[in-house]
Write a protein that binds this DNA or RNA. Structure first.
Length: 591
DNA sequence: CTGGGGAAGGGGCCC
DNA sequence: AGGGCCCCTTCCCCA
């Protein structure tokens, strides 16, 4: 858990803010979308912990004497059967005792083997299905009975069963399904990889939205007003689960992953099944993969993709790969105008960042979605990119392809060798323009600068020769949040970095006088109503802001330094050096 | 505070 | 056009 929390802190939002990457759309003043890729897994983890502890459980499933406390909402989210049972189906009225209201109920599922039911519950709460090969059939049957389609698909995939037509499709649904199939066939005109990518994208949506928003394939199968303790057996008998695939989705999306070795090794490693203690373990992506794209007509596809780009819906948005110059065309009323031409550059729909390079947008999008499809088969570490995995694998293979020509040292990365060579040469090409201390690495020089460890702390607004220790201490405080706001940014903020403004006590419950609150982490922060934006910033200080840039934006202070010139992080070292030179000159002029 | 290792993300080139 | 591969920069962490 702590690991997850740590990832939460260090994942997209912070880094994005740090680099000024979470930017507002020009037309959406004040609206900021911040994806939290770990949120869904975090929630799931806590729900699972509650289940295991029996907390807040309002539904008990029983199977042949075994009892499984669980949560209605979770089961309704993962199972079509329970969704219908509890009236949680969209548009369905919560009816009867089993409706969406409260109450505690017991559902007897003797038709599902206890082990299978346990595995399905584990899946529901962990998004990972861990089953023994021998129990595959039971799990498949249970998943069919409960309407957990992705598990059904995964099991069928493993068992090598093929999916046929769905007997219980209504006429309207059949038309819809046929329309989807036509769309799918149309999509298949593109490359196979493209289709796979679409699926991955949709999987991302599914990941945060456990069941797809689509006209449900068998709502009639689960009446919204079921009997108090309906038996899935009846349900299953209705749907002929043992002989029929419960969904037309299978038909549309024949399993392709991991069957013909088409995918690259990295992907296979991350997405395929892996043997676990004699069982088979399906990662989340694979389980969700069979979910189809939204049933869209060709004309609607672009629109809906754009709708999915919204980040305010709590889900991680999917994205369109439409290039900047093509988006208008693609979303126009042309209908058949989905064919896209040049793909570079492309704008990220989440952070608005312009991504250069064909095919680079999906790679960038994974920084938002948190998807890490490339898993190290040795240690299980996952990566967003296969080239990173490849480099990582060198640690296991011992390969160090970058030997130093001057000594026996070998390195994993080319830049390590580069750094190392500078040690041989003694070159320290990066010199601080203020204190003239030289560094072998540019980032060390930057750290030196940002750390205010030299005379750089002398800002134009303050006397240079104050108590030096104070400067150093203040510098450390300013930097204390770890975000490393440069003096440039602080100056652009027009903040007077008086010690009181960043004193840990300031702003902790109460405005100043008598404000006595714990300065440590966890102290309650209170924004007095009368405190305006600048006061609020002074109260907090940059080191207290989890998303400093956000607050500044939210307070509409018009901080150019944060979202202006630094946004996008595209400043070149040369520019940075030039800026420093300029500052140094100004400082000297001040003297 | 500095040196070093490593991860993450972006861009260029090529297929 | 998309993806693989490589290089680069930036940042974080640790000693």
């Amino acid at each position: 858990m702590t690991q997850t929390q740590h990832r939460l802190q260090s994942t997209v939002p912070l880094s994005a803010m740090k680099a000024g990457k979470v930017a507002m759309s020009p037309g959406e003043d004040g609206l900021i979308g911040i994806p939290f890729p770990e949120h869904s897994s975090e929630i799931l983890f806590r729900l699972n912990a509650q289940r295991r502890a029996g907390l807040l459980c309002d539904l008990t499933l029983t199977s042949r004497g075994a009892r499984y406390p669980t949560h209605r909402s979770v089961m309704a989210a993962v199972s079509l059967y329970f969704r219908g049972l509890f009236g949680a189906e969209e548009g369905a009225e919560a009816g009867g005792e089993a409706g969406g209201g409260g109450g505690f109920s017991v559902c007897q599922l003797d038709c599902v083997a206890p082990d299978a039911l346990d595995a399905l519950l584990e899946f529901a709460y962990t998004a990972t299905l861990t089953i023994r090969s021998s129990g595959m059939r039971d799990v498949l049957r249970g998943a069919q009975l409960l309407g957990i389609q992705c598990v059904v698909d995964a099991c069928r995939d493993i068992l090598g069963e093929t999916a046929g037509e769905v007997e219980w499709e209504t006429g309207e649904e059949r038309v819809q399904a046929e329309r989807e199939r036509r769309v799918e066939r149309g999509m298949k005109k593109g490359s196979r990889r493209k289709i796979d990518r679409r699926r991955v994208n949709k999987v991302e949506s599914s990941h945060h939205q456990p069941l797809p928003h689509r006209p449900n394939i068998n709502t009639h199968q689960h009446p919204s007003t079921p009997p108090p303790h309906p038996s899935p057996v009846q349900d299953g008998a209705h749907s002929h689960p043992s002989t029929r695939p419960p969904s037309p989705e299978q038909d549309e999306h024949p399993p392709t992953t991991g069957q013909n070795g088409e995918r690259k090794q990295g992907r296979n490693a991350g997405r395929g099944s892996t043997a676990v203690n004699g069982g088979v373990r399906w990662p989340q992506e694979r389980l969700l993969a069979p979910h189809p794209p939204l049933p869209l007509s060709d004309d609607r596809l672009s629109e809906d993709e754009e709708e999915m780009e919204g980040v305010g819906n709590g889900g991680v948005p999917s994205f369109t790969s439409a290039p900047l110059v093509e988006q208008e065309v693609a979303t126009g009323a042309g209908g058949g105008g989905r064919k896209r031409k040049s793909q570079t550059p492309q704008q990220c729909p989440v952070c608005q960042k312009i991504i250069h390079g064909a095919g680079k947008l999906p790679r960038h999008m994974r920084t938002h979605t948190g998807e890490k499809p490339f898993e190290c088969s040795t240690c299980g570490v996952r990566f967003t990119r296969n080239d990173k995995l490849k480099i990582h694998m060198r640690k296991h293979t011992g390969e160090r392809p970058y030997p130093c020509p001057h000594c026996p040292a070998r390195f994993l990365h080319s830049y390590d060798l580069k750094n190392h060579l500078s040690l041989h040469s003694g070159a320290r090409p990066f010199e601080c323009p203020l204190c003239h201390k030289a560094f072998a690495r540019e980032d060390h020089l930057q750290r030196h600068r940002k750390g205010l460890s030299c005379l750089e702390v002398r800002t134009r607004a303050r006397p240079r020769r104050g108590p030096g220790a104070d400067h150093g201490e203040e510098g450390r405080r300013v930097r204390g949040g770890g975000r490393g706001y440069s003096p440039d940014q602080l100056e652009n903020l027009d903040l007077q970095p008086h010690a009181s403004a960043f004193h840990p006590r300031a702003g902790m419950v109460g405005l100043g006088d008598g404000a006595e609150a714990g300065a440590g982490a966890g102290g309650q922060m209170v924004f007095p109503e009368e405190a305006d934006g600048e006061q609020a910033i002074a109260l907090l200080g940059p080191h207290r802001l989890p998303y400093p840039g956000l607050l500044w934006r939210g307070l509409e202070l018009g901080v150019r330094g944060v979202e202006g010139e630094e946004a996008g992080g595209g400043h070149s070292p040369a520019l940075q050096h030039a800026r420093w030179e300029e500052e140094a000159e100004e400082d000297e002029e001040d003297e």
